[in-house]
């Protein structure tokens, strides 16, 4: 259960953040999840209620912003969606690429009181 451990870590991190910044309540937590981050959005949503139980985030809503996995072809320079194209450049067919976006897994912002 990769996601549960991750969410528990996020909850701890945000509880500390609340103490440090004197925040009473977080209404909404927005996470940025890259398509290539290895984290499954559905599982994040599934385990979230369990992870926040009896924490300061118990009543905090979760929102996910998904960042697409975009790569740049090393052969022809074309920029394309890696997930939709199975990592193969639709222009020249090369499978050598560098990742531009989609690896990130971030706490983006909070709506707080």
């Amino acid at each position: 259960m990769h996601e549960l451990g991750i969410v528990i870590q996020i909850v701890k991190q945000m509880e500390n953040y609340m103490d440090e910044h004197d925040i009473k309540r977080i209404d909404k937590l927005v996470l940025g999840v890259g398509e290539l981050s290895g984290v499954v959005p559905k599982y994040l949503r599934d385990v979230y209620p369990i992870a926040v139980e009896e924490s300061k985030l118990q009543n905090t809503k979760l929102e996910l912003e998904i960042t697409p996995g975009i790569g740049k072809c090393q052969a022809c320079g074309f920029t394309y969606n890696l997930v939709q194209n199975d990592n193969i450049c639709p222009k020249c067919g090369s499978n050598e690429f560098s990742i531009i976006t989609g690896k990130e897994f971030m706490i983006q912002r909070i709506h707080a009181e």
Binding site: N16, H21, M106, I107, E113
Partner: peptide, 17 residues
């Protein structure tokens, strides 16, 4: 109740670890 404000946290989830 105070008004909600939006705080840009922009921290990697792995930052704590």
């Amino acid at each position: 109740m105070d008004a909600l404000r939006v705080i840009e946290v922009k921290k990697s989830v792995y930052a704590n670890n």
